[in-house]
Design a protein around this nucleic acid. Structure first.
Lengths: 340, 340
DNA sequence: TTGAAAGCGATACCAC
DNA sequence: GTGGTATCGCTTTCAA
C-alpha cells in the first residue's frame, strides 16, 4: 500500500525508469506511441503519482507559492485588510496552476509570525513568497533579501541597504488627485487629519497631499499638516470658526471622530465642511465617505504575477510596481460653504 | 548568491557534512560543545538554511498539511460555510508548528477543483490533507482512499467500498435533542420542512428527527416528513388550520420562506407556531431562530489533530469522529398555542 | 567523537 | 529510440 515509484512502473511496463520519467513529465518527443501506452497503462494500474519532494529537489521548482502574513490570516480575513488581497492571490494562483503554502508554523506566543526561527527559514519550501502584513518585521525582510530569497511584499517597505520589491498602492497620486478634485470644486482652505502611524503608506499619503497643496497654492494651517497627529478639542474649535472648508483624513476612524466633534459644535458634513478620506473600499458600513479605493484584489493578482515572472525567469530584475487607486464619490463632499 | 549547502558549511567549519547535519537537525548528543559552536558560527556566516525538499525526500515528512476545498476558499470564506473551519484549522496548525498548503492548482474551468489531474495528485506534497467542501467528489475520495493517502474529511461522506475518515457534526443527536426540547414544552404535533438536498448531513438530521418523533410518539403528517421537499401553498394552508404547533426546518432559507407564507395567512412565529432550525451559528443576521450551532472552529481544530495523530503515528487507525452540536435558544419557539 | 557512504525519487545527459 | 548513471541536498548507519 505504499506509494509506487517510477522504478516500479518501469518494471511493470518492461521499460527503463528514464522512459517512465519522460512519459510522466511529458517529454515524449521520441518515444513511440506504443511504448507510451504501455507506460501509461502501468502508471494507471499501480496508481503511480510523482513524488513532489523528489521533483522539487531535482528541478528546484515546486509550483508552490508561499503566503506569509505577519499575523494570523483568518481571524483578520473578514475585515478587509487581508481578505481582498487573498482573494486575488488565490484567484490568480489557481488560474496559473500554482498551489499556495500558508506559512503558519512560525507563530510565536505573542501572535506575531516570524520568518526565521532558530535559523531555519521555512519559506524556501515555496518557489517564492508573497509577504503581507501591517506588522512587517523589517529585519527579517532585510535578511530575506540578503539571502537572495525570491519574494514580493504587498505595500511599500523601505529597508536600508535592501531593495525590497513591493506592490504599492499609489497613495501619492491618489491623495494628490483627491485634493485636486476638492480644489476644483472651489475649496481653498484645507485641513489635514493625521494618524499617529509612521509607515510608508502614510508617508505616501502625506507626500501626495503636500504636492497638491503646494502645486495648487492652497492654504493649510492644520496641526496635521505640520506633523502633529492630535485631533484636539482646541483644533476642532479653530476649525469650527476658521476659514477651512475641506478636511482630508488619513483614515476612516479619524473622519468619524471628526464628525462627532463637529456635530457637538452644531456643524454637519458636508453642509458646513467637506471631508474626504485617504482610505476605504467604497462600501464601508455606515456613512459613505468620499474616499480612495485600494484595489486589493488586483494587487493580490499582480503580486502573484510579479512573483511568478521571477520564478520562471530568474534573470528578471526584482522591481516594485505602483498600482493606481480610484477615487470614489460619497456623500461627504460638497461645494464650499461661504462662511460669514 | 546561491543557497549554501551543508557541505559548504562543513568546509568552512572544517568538519564533515554529517556533523553539520547532526547539529542542524538537533541530534547533538555526542558532539562536543566546541565543534557545535564552530558549526553554528559557519551556519550563521553563510546564512545556511536547510533545503526543505531534500529533507522531505529523506524524511517522508514535511510538517506540511494540505487543505483541499472543492471550491475556491476565499470567495466563500466570508460566509460561514468555510470560514470558521479554516479559522480552527489555521489556529491549530500554528499551535503545533505545521504549515498549510492550499491546493489551488487544480482548478478547472467550471470553478470546481479536482484532486487528480492528468493522473497527478498534488496532494502528496503534504503529509496529510484536510478535505472539505459541499461539492465533494466521491470518486476522487474513493481513489484517494484506495491510494492509501492520509486525509480526513470535514463532514460525513459515505463512499461504497471505502472507509472515509470524517469529522462529523452530530446532527443525529442534535436533531433528536431539539425535538425533545420542543416536546418538553408541550408540543405534540410537528411538521418537518425538508430541503431538496440529498446528502449525508441532511440524512443525519432526518434520522435524528425521526428517532425523536418515534421515541416520543409524536405526530407528524407533513410532506417533509414523508420525504417530499416541497413547501407548497397547499401545505401552508393545511398547516394554518391543522393541529401542528411546531415546525422543524432543515435550514434557515426554508424557515424564512415559512415565515413569509405564514405571515400571508395572518400567522406569526412563535405566537401561532413555533419554529426551530437544524442549522445555524446562533448569530445570523435578521431573526434569531432557535437552532443548533455547528462548532465549526472546533471541528477544524479536531480535523488537524486527527490528521496529525496519523501523520506522526502511521499505525494509528483512521477513524471518524462525532462532534456534538449545541442547541441555542432564539425567539422562535414558545409553548404551543391552543388552537380553537 | 567523527566521517564515508548509501540511499530517498526524479531528471537529464550521454552513450549505445 | 532507449537506458545507464550522475546528481539534487539531506539523514543515518556503520566503521574507523
Amino acid at each position: 500500500m505504499k506509494a509506487p515509484r517510477q522504478s516500479d512502473v518501469a518494471r511493470v511496463a518492461g521499460v527503463s525508469q528514464s522512459a517512465v520519467s519522460r512519459v510522466v513529465s511529458g517529454d515524449i518527443d521520441r518515444i513511440p506511441q506504443e511504448t507510451q501506452e504501455r507506460i501509461r497503462a502501468a502508471v494507471k494500474e499501480l496508481g503511480y503519482v510523482p513524488n513532489a519532494a523528489a521533483r522539487n529537489l531535482r528541478n528546484k521548482r515546486n509550483r508552490l507559492l508561499g503566503v506569509h502574513t505577519f499575523e494570523a490570516v483568518f481571524p483578520h480575513a473578514r475585515e478587509d485588510f487581508y481578505f481582498e488581497f487573498l482573494l486575488g492571490i488565490e484567484e490568480r494562483a489557481e488560474e496559473i496552476g500554482y498551489d499556495l503554502v500558508l506559512f503558519t508554523s512560525t507563530g510565536t506566543s505573542d501572535g506575531r509570525r516570524r520568518i526565521y526561527r532558530d535559523g531555519t527559514n521555512r519559506l524556501n519550501l515555496a518557489d517564492g513568497t508573497v509577504l503581507l502584513g501591517a506588522a512587517t518585521d523589517r529585519e527579517e525582510l532585510a535578511r530575506l533579501w540578503h539571502d537572495g530569497y525570491l519574494f514580493v511584499h504587498i505595500g511599500r517597505r523601505e529597508v536600508p541597504g535592501a531593495e525590497i520589491p513591493c506592490i504599492i498602492p499609489d497613495y501619492v497620486s491618489a491623495a494628490d488627485r483627491l485634493v485636486t478634485s476638492l480644489a476644483e470644486r472651489g475649496h481653498r482652505h484645507f485641513a489635514y487629519l493625521r494618524s499617529g502611524i509612521e509607515q510608508e503608506a502614510y508617508a505616501d499619503r502625506r507626500a501626495g497631499y503636500r504636492n497638491a497643496v503646494e502645486r495648487l497654492d492652497l492654504q493649510d494651517r492644520s496641526p496635521g499638516f505640520r506633523g502633529e497627529p492630535e485631533l484636539t478639542e482646541e483644533w476642532l474649535d479653530e476649525l469650527a470658526s476658521g476659514p477651512e472648508t475641506a478636511v482630508v483624513a488619513e483614515n476612516i476612524g479619524l473622519a468619524e471622530h471628526l464628525r462627532t466633534g463637529l456635530a457637538a459644535r452644531g456643524l454637519s458634513i458636508p453642509g458646513d465642511l467637506s471631508v474626504a478620506v485617504l482610505e476605504g473600499s467604497g462600501d464601508e458600513p455606515g456613512h459613505r465617505w468620499d474616499c480612495l479605493v485600494i484595489p486589493r484584489k488586483e494587487i493580490g493578482r499582480i503580486a502573484i504575477d510579479a512573483l511568478v515572472a521571477r520564478v520562471e525567469n530568474p534573470d528578471e530584475e526584482p522591481v516594485s510596481q505602483l498600482v493606481a487607486c480610484d477615487l470614489v464619490a460619497g456623500e461627504t463632499v460638497a461645494a464650499p460653504r461661504v462662511k460669514e
